[in-house]
């Protein structure tokens, strides 16, 4: 039986992380118990003109407090509505959705780019808790290094910035090379060009890579077939090399998918 739930849950805390990026903590025992690093939830808007749920990655899971922390960028009316919510408000949520990262390896390289950074935080925590050496590589546009300090308790953290203001100038692969980071598994979330670069880097260096994809979604549960990606093997739903990001992903082994 699926562990997915849909319910109206309380917002217990909200916070502006940086310009345009917000944190929201929601409280629910079922969600917090079932959630795993790399999964996501669907948040529904109150404004009836915004029909589709917003898929938001899980940034942190606190089973003791029974909360999930969601960190998202405001990109439209839906996320703008969420950003105005306050502690004590309620929000309709469905989740946890998709499959998270497989927690494996002995020396993991965790890579996050932009708004792909939040799901890597719980991943870092979970891997650290099971004794995996965690090496975090974060890609930013500029010196606005949101969430960076929160990774530091769980492992080493290096950054790349597009403008070169902090860390390695360039992208996350440049930072990995400049710092001679090595490991036996990569886990990554971020924009598609970054993920393509990581897939190539992982192949060149024979490192196993798990990457988390995103796409416009409608149902969030694998029914509508909006959020597919090209897969190497035939998918078990349609038999046509189309994996559903919401249901079969969002995390895939890099060699499974064509990006």
């Amino acid at each position: 039986m699926s562990e997915k739930v849909i319910k109206v849950v309380p917002v217990v805390k909200t916070e502006k992380v940086t310009e345009g990026v917000f944190s929201m903590w929601i409280k629910d025992k079922d969600l917090a118990t079932a959630a795993k690093a790399g999964q996501f939830v669907s948040l529904y808007c109150n404004d009836g003109s915004q029909l589709l749920p917003r898929p938001i990655s899980i940034c942190e899971i606190d089973t003791k407090e029974e909360t999930l922390r969601l960190v998202y960028r405001v990109v439209g009316k839906g996320t703008e509505e969420f950003s105005k919510m306050k502690a004590g408000d309620e929000i309709r949520v469905m989740g946890p959705l998709g499959n998270g990262f497989t927690l494996e390896g002995t020396e993991a390289i965790l890579i996050g780019g932009g708004i792909g950074i939040p799901p890597m935080l719980q991943t870092a925590k979970s891997l650290h808790a099971q004794g995996v050496k965690v090496q975090v590589v974060l890609g930013y546009r500029d010196s606005d290094l949101f969430l960076k300090s929160e990774f530091e308790p769980y492992g080493s953290v290096i950054v790349s910035t597009e403008d070169g203001s902090v860390g390695t100038k360039g992208n996350v692969i440049d930072a990995i090379k400049a710092n001679n980071v090595s490991g036996d598994v990569i886990m990554a979330c971020g924009p598609m060009p970054m993920l393509r670069g990581i897939k190539a880097f992982a192949q060149e260096n024979s490192i196993k890579a798990q990457i988390s994809l995103e796409e416009k979604m409608a149902c969030g549960i694998g029914a509508c077939l909006a959020c597919v990606c090209k897969s190497k093997d035939k998918d078990h739903h349609t038999n046509v090399n189309n994996k559903r990001i919401c249901k079969d992903g969002p995390v895939f082994y890099a060699e499974e998918i064509e990006i």
Binding site: M217, A218, A226, T238
Partner: peptide, 10 residues
Amino acid sequence: PWPGNPTPRI
């Protein structure tokens, strides 16, 4: 089987 259209689809 039909593979459908390219993404984004919605």
